[in-house]
């Protein structure tokens, strides 16, 4: 099954390398939801996620001829997304050097922008409120982790990727992925508690 999918994907990649617009459209349609969701969970800002998502596809199209097909295309795209996001985080750190200060706190626009509602809309109002609360703390805690820890948790616990896949995406060996996941989960536990999240 997986091999058949891989063959289809390789054929698609050949067409994309030949710059076939239909193939590009098919690929974007197939991969965009996953890439966008990954970007959204990395950035936690809708507009930033959209920018990052566009950047990922632009970079992918530029480098598509270098894609050898040794990993799944989605893994390759995720790798681009993660590297692009890490670059942004590094750029932000260097640019602002911790000098973001405000006399009146964040503006309303900034506050509203930072709120993404990761809640299932089919739930009852009380369940939605509870879930919103839980999601708020866990996503905030996740956002406070260092970028590598955040990525490994995102891929493992939200995206349900295998260790092997994570190792390929992050360009690490399996042992490192495991130890990083352990460290990241411990850090998440501490941060979640520190931010006011409650355990049952």
């Amino acid at each position: 099954m997986e091999n058949a999918a891989r063959t289809d994907q390789n054929e698609l990649m050949v067409l994309i390398q030949k710059e076939d617009p239909d193939a590009v459209a098919r690929l974007v349609k197939a991969e965009l939801p996953r890439v966008y969701n990954l970007c959204l969970k990395l950035c936690l800002h809708q507009s930033d996620a959209e920018d990052l998502c566009q950047e990922v596809f632009v970079k992918a199209f530029q480098a598509v001829k270098k894609f050898k097909g040794d990993a799944a295309f989605s893994t390759w795209l995720h790798r681009i997304a993660i590297n692009a996001w890490k670059n942004r985080v590094r750029y932000e750190k260097r640019r602002f050097f911790g000098m973001h200060f405000s006399l009146q706190g964040p503006t309303d626009a900034e506050e509203n922008e930072s709120e993404i509602e990761l809640v299932d809309k089919a739930l009852r109002p009380d369940q939605r409120i509870e879930e919103l609360e839980n999601n708020h703390f866990i996503m905030k805690a996740l956002d406070k982790l260092n970028p590598d820890d955040k990525i490994v948790i995102l891929l493992k616990d939200i995206e349900n990727r295998s260790y092997e896949d994570i190792a390929k995406t992050m360009d690490l060996n399996m042992g490192t992925v495991k130890s990083r996941l352990f460290r990241a989960r411990e850090a998440l536990r501490e941060t979640y508690r520190r931010l006011g999240g409650r355990y049952p």
Partner: peptide, 13 residues
């Protein structure tokens, strides 16, 4: 924590 993370829904594009 894992349960909470797994429950984070997928968002529409």
């Amino acid at each position: 924590n894992i349960r909470l993370l797994k429950a984070v829904p997928t968002v529409e594009i």
